[in-house]
């Protein structure tokens, strides 16, 4: 049964922002209980993909299925119900700056459940323990380092035990240690809670170490996909340039421009 194996199923998706095409007919599947990585160079709208899955944006054509149910076709109230089963870790962490770390993590619980305050306390402390920040419960978000803020946000993202966690650039701008911590956490959460994860990133090495399946996006299309090993062996020049990080290749070093000599000679 293919339908039940995939938590998220994107079919022939096209999305434009103004006159710019972001995606041109892409299809990808996110199998249940696995870590799926979506990679690609900066500025091609990887975050947009997550917002499309979350229903914050609507595709111009194509369909996005969550448990076989079309997200763009949902009414707002249904969408809000479905969103409780997913959560998203934003690049900036997006902790609420006007409350403590503890209240941040308790927030979705207080909004969506009718749990007693002492049960909430237990849940929050357990979630904080799992990201190693129980000691930081009383701090304000402004007192946290970037890596700690992201871990706290991760604790908030798993507060309601979602089925799907979407990570938006979890490794961007992290030092090697916190990067290692995050890699370990993502893997651990996936294994212990059985959640499905989508990791959007351009940090090749880290993500290949934990991903079960990889998609590489460029030029509005999927240019390569497969398990990490398959992707490493991919014959496409573009994929290899991206994985190895060479400066020039199919993705040119230069932004499209007139010839240098001509530009310099131009009379102003």
């Amino acid at each position: 049964m293919k339908q039940t194996d995939n938590l998220v199923d994107i079919k022939d998706l096209t999305f434009r922002r103004g006159s710019r095409t972001i995606y041109d007919g892409i299809s990808l599947q996110v199998p249940k209980g696995k870590i799926t990585a979506v990679m690609g160079p900066s500025g091609i709208g990887k975050t947009t993909l997550l917002k499309l899955i979350g229903g914050q944006l609507r595709p111009d054509s194509g369909d996005i299925l969550f448990r076989g149910e079309s997200i763009p076709a949902m009414r707002r109230s249904r969408l809000f119900k479905v969103r409780r089963q997913m959560s998203m870790l934003f690049q900036s962490g997006a902790l609420f700056t006007d409350m403590t770390v503890y209240d941040n993590i308790a927030y979705p619980l207080r909004e969506h459940t009718r749990l007693e305050e002492d049960i909430i306390r237990t849940v929050v402390l357990l979630k904080l323990q799992s990201v190693g920040l129980r000691g930081a419960a009383g701090l304000m978000p402004s007192e946290l380092s970037g890596g700690m803020a992201r871990r706290a946000a991760l604790a908030r993202a798993i507060a309601l035990d979602p089925d799907l966690i979407m990570y938006d650039e979890p490794f961007a701008g992290q030092d090697p240690i916190s990067m290692g911590v995050l890699v370990k956490l993502i893997k651990q959460l996936n294994d212990s809670l059985g959640v499905t994860s989508i990791v959007v990133t351009h940090d090749v090495k880290e993500v290949l170490s934990i991903a079960d399946y990889v998609y590489i996006l460029a030029n509005q299309k999927i240019i390569g996909s497969g398990t990490p090993d398959e992707v490493r062996e991919d014959s496409s020049e573009l994929v290899q340039q991206f994985l190895q990080g060479s400066a020039d290749g199919p993705v040119p070093f230069h932004y499209p421009a007139d010839e240098l000599a001509k530009s310099l000679m131009e009379v102003r």
Partner: peptide
């Protein structure tokens, strides 16, 4: 505006909480 820039509004949306009301 800063809440929007730091994705706090987006994050509320994703938590199924309407930022207009909250």
């Amino acid at each position: 505006g800063l809440m929007k820039a730091t994705e706090q509004l987006s994050s509320l949306e994703m938590m199924a909480i309407d930022p207009l009301r909250r």
